[in-house]
Amino acid sequence: MGFKLLSKLLVYLTASIMAIASPLAFSVDSSGEYPTVSEIPVGEVRLYQIADGVWSHIATQSFDGAVYPSNGLIVRDGDELLLIDTAWGAKNTAALLAEIEKQIGLPVTRAVSTHFHDDRVGGVDVLRAAGVATYASPSTRRLAEVEGNEIPTHSLEGLSSSGDAVRFGPVELFYPGAAHSTDNLIVYVPSASVLYGGCAIYELSRTSAGNVADADLAEWPTSIERIQQHYPEAQFVIPGHGLPGGLDLLKHTTNVVKAHTNRSVVE
């Protein structure tokens, strides 16, 4: 069995187990497998329904001669939608809004960016022009300005110390501490036991640490421990890039980060 097929099978099995364990909360999309990078042309966006009122959005972007996937989250909030992270750029984010209108038909009224990198804030200006209120932590807003990236308009308070959590509509926002970046936030959907790890969490097929220019490698494993301790009931975990899975993604990420750190020390 090929690795790609095995990865998709694991996603399907995880979703099936969740649907059985929580039949009222989960209505997993039966329309197909989780979209992969090879299936999404740059400039297009796919939506994948995880649970009743919960979707991931998947886009792709060219970077350094390669094409990478990027995940975000959409959560229903009454007759409105909360968006977590842009679709990595203005063109993708405009396509995301169009796809949401086509498939869901509810307005996106608020959006949260989970850290300051372009795959999370690139497209904020498109959201703002569409009347979406954009939010991020003060740290993310400051770092985005320093980096020359787009800056969300509103500040999220109460997320300055490791372990801080605040309720934001249908989700809980959690600051686990520094990891992929010093400002990275985690998003949890309690009604569906869905954990969105953003770039602080890796997919299972990833074996290298990737972009760690703004990471705190020493603190990252401790931050992941905080996530595990705060959300032990999480059933569906979405990484910032690639295929979702279960809580095993947290341990896998820790292993990859520690291996990278150990290699760096040896070198």
Rank of each mutant, 00 (worst) to 15 (best):
V256Y: 02
S264P: 12
L5P: 13
H230T: 12
V42S: 12
G177D: 05
D79Y: 09
C199I: 00
Q229A: 13
A165F: 13
V124S: 09
V11P: 15
H154A: 08
T153Y: 12
F168L: 08
S27D: 11
V189M: 03
P41Y: 06
T134C: 04
A21L: 12
P221Q: 09
V266C: 05
W88K: 00
S22P: 13
S38D: 12
N255A: 12
K8Y: 15
Q229L: 13
I17V: 11
L173N: 04
T182M: 14
T261H: 15
A21V: 14
E233T: 12
G246M: 04
V75H: 00
E145S: 14
D64G: 13
L156G: 02
A234V: 09
Y188W: 14
D85E: 02
E219T: 09
I151G: 03
Y231C: 06
S16T: 14
Q235V: 10
G32Y: 13
S223V: 08
E101G: 11
D29Q: 10
I50L: 09
M1G: 07
I40E: 07
V121Q: 00
T60E: 05
S7Y: 14
A90W: 07
L73W: 02
T114N: 00
Y231I: 02
A213H: 12
I151R: 06
L24Y: 15
I224W: 02
R141Q: 12
G169H: 06
G43E: 07
A215L: 05
P138M: 08
D214K: 07
S22F: 09
A66C: 06
E150D: 13
E39Y: 11
V42K: 08
T14D: 11
V237H: 01
P138E: 10
G131A: 07
L249M: 08
S191Q: 13
A192Q: 13
I100F: 03
D214Y: 07
A21T: 14
S22R: 13
Q103V: 13
T261M: 11
S27C: 12
Q103Y: 11
P232L: 09
T254I: 13
S223G: 04
D64Q: 11
V171C: 00
R128I: 11
L96K: 00
T93P: 00
Q229V: 12
R110G: 07
P190N: 06
Y34T: 08
G242C: 05
S16L: 12
L9R: 15
V194N: 03
S70K: 02
G198Y: 03
S181A: 07
D29H: 10
L6E: 15
G2C: 09
T182D: 11
P138D: 09
V67F: 15
Y68I: 11
V194H: 02
P239T: 04
N255V: 12
G242S: 05
S38V: 08
I58N: 06
D64W: 09
W55Y: 06
G123P: 04
K102Q: 10
R263M: 13
V37G: 15
T36K: 12
A215V: 07
S191N: 12
